[in-house]
Design a protein around this nucleic acid. Structure first.
Lengths: 362, 362
DNA sequence: CTGAAAGCGCTTACAG
DNA sequence: CTGAAAGCGCTTACAG
């Protein structure tokens, strides 16, 4: 399957009777050329069906006009939407998009970053799987590769970042439940450990109002923190029994812990889920137990999914602007690639509480 | 933001006291080198933090180890899953993935293909937006660029392809409804025109049993054909009034036509939707009209979405193996890239009817 | 405005 | 096994 017809700039130059330098200038759109030669070159290029080889150009310019993205899982609606936002601005600027999945696994993430670096992407957007150890990201920074962090920050890495204000959004959601009269509110969260001292220690400190390095916390931990703050503000105790940890990005894990809680004595009157995967597992558990929303249980979900609007009752949710987050990240990255030199920026985008019918007034 | 520390093979060779050829051989893993020199080179590479420049390598080998994909919309669950499948096998084989969206628009698709070709991808997977005019795809073929078609075939283009057997799957779904006693069954489909003579002509021919070029029909048309065949087989007339065309990939468009039908006199007792976007629009319409499934209306949806299993009642659906389709497409493409030389293959993957609670027995 | 020459960072015959 | 040299397909100073 050898490629036929692969005309090079030398072929075009020969056919047009000019030097390769001149042919390059008109085809590449740089430098000056007389109208006459321009026309000759274009004509020759057309008959030879000349297509530039971006590799050769990149090798010499040092720019590939390609963005690299390491997402957790492109199948997950959060990433799919953010990726679409990134793609929109990349495309509008004539950039290509090299996409990889980390599955929230640091080893895979490192491998992805390496692949993208070798392919000489002009910059990277990464949703890191570990907010603490991230030598590969520090290395990028050291090598001067533009980098934007999406969704999660990294301890000690001062680079551009876009995320949602998770703490504020979660706090708002939980206060909404409290305002509706709920006192026993469960939270369903990933809370992958990442050596943060464990859930118990975290709860103790957070409940005590200990100022914590909330900025670099993993999102589900931030949302838990918002949940705790809502309780503190409203003068309600936090019941550790209602703090459900799935331990991984798994709907099944969420389903299991929710089932267990809802069949135990004194189940909560409301649940707050911290992302789409947890929401899905929770919905499965409720369907399985034949529990009705909001009669048997009220619910607010972090991340607004399509079905929440036509589910009956509609599900009250916190909508992150996924698409806009992706767009913002890509725009910031493009600015860095262009060489703009601000200090590192953090863009915290507002999440919106969408009230529907899943919260009962008690 | 100039990159520092960008060691080249020449730097490594110098540090190791060998020629660039030798350094290249050990770093690139080709040719033979003595253990001694190997060690020297590796050591030098390590201290210089050498990272190969894939561009330079590709320029000379003619291979980029990168796959190009043009999807309709990576945010759509069908594409997101298929892409994940593609990504899985690409990654397992050390290939990168360059992804673009066409938004089902031919001009954008052509632009995407051009971008990917210029970036010298080793092969392409495309879900084309037009199954008839596809010169850009014929050109790829002529240039010897490996190409796999996903989901849709192109008239006269004999290349590898993976898709679902849409006609059979739709037929099965509709016969399932008929078997449950339904006689007035509506279908909600995109049916973008693409010069196929229009819906009326199509219906007339299909109902008459006219053998049609079903292979290269756009999926929603194929599913309509399955719907018609089910009626023919069961000896039921096809009522054109129940044939709903959205005209575009828009949930809103589907919602509008479904609302109109369900509020008109003599609404159907069941609906069959031809993909996730149509399903979503349909669900919105039903929620809006406060229609209950399956009491007021039975439903079968093409494409199984997460929420269909925990919706109450569960929604009976046709599940396409999206992930497996993506994996199959990528595997076939990789085989072509390796130079394997079968005649063009068509892989039709089976879709599965998942019975849940959305079909009432009449 | 135009061309000859060098060079981007690698790999690939070709001698030895 | 190893090195000098050429070359992949472009762009970029540098003269003229």
């Amino acid at each position: 399957m050898a490629r036929i017809n692969k005309a090079t700039i030398a072929d075009v130059a020969r056919a047009a009777g000019v030097s390769t330098a001149t042919a390059g200038r008109v085809l590449g759109g740089y430098g000056y050329t007389s109208e006459e030669k321009k026309e000759q070159v274009f004509k020759a290029a057309q008959t030879l069906r000349y297509q530039p080889n971006a590799l050769a150009r990149s090798l010499i310019t040092g720019k590939t006009r390609t963005l690299g993205v390491v997402a957790g899982d492109i199948q997950n609606p959060f990433y799919a939407s953010a990726l679409r936002g990134i793609s929109n601005v990349a495309e509008a600027n004539g950039f290509g998009l090299l996409i990889t999945n980390s599955d929230e696994d640091q080893a895979k993430e490192i491998q992805s970053v390496e692949l993208l670096a070798q392919k000489q992407v002009d910059g990277l957007i990464v949703t890191t799987s570990d907010t603490r150890k991230a030598r590969h990201l520090h290395n990028l920074r050291a090598m001067g590769v533009p980098l934007v962090l999406l969704d999660r920050a990294v301890v000690g890495l001062m680079v551009d970042r876009v995320a949602t204000d998770n703490i504020a959004a979660a706090e708002q959601a939980v206060r909404h439940l409290i305002a509706a009269g709920h006192r026993q509110i469960g939270i369903v969260a990933e809370l992958v450990d990442e050596e943060s001292g464990g859930l118990d220690v975290f709860l103790t400190r957070a409940v005590a109002g200990d100022p914590m390095e909330s900025e670099t916390l993993y999102p589900s931990w931030q949302r838990l923190l918002g949940y705790i703050r809502a309780h503190r503000i409203e003068g309600l105790p936090v019941d550790p029994r209602l703090t459900l940890r799935a331990g991984s990005y798994s709907a099944l894990a969420a389903q299991v812990v929710v089932s267990r809680l809802m069949t135990a004595p004194h189940p909560p009157t409301a649940l707050f889920t911290t992302d789409s995967t947890m929401s899905e597992g929770t919905m499965r558990a409720l369907a399985e137990l034949n529990l009705s929303i909001p009669q048997d249980l009220s619910l607010i979900c972090f991340d607004d999914l399509d079905w929440m609007s036509f589910h009956r009752p509609g599900v009250t949710s916190i909508a992150q602007p996924h698409l806009a987050m992706g767009e913002a990240a890509a725009r910031m990255l493009l600015e860095r690639i262009r060489g703009e030199n601000y200090p590192p920026r953090t863009v915290l985008m507002p999440a919106e509480l969408i009230e529907r019918g899943s919260v009962a007034r008690l």
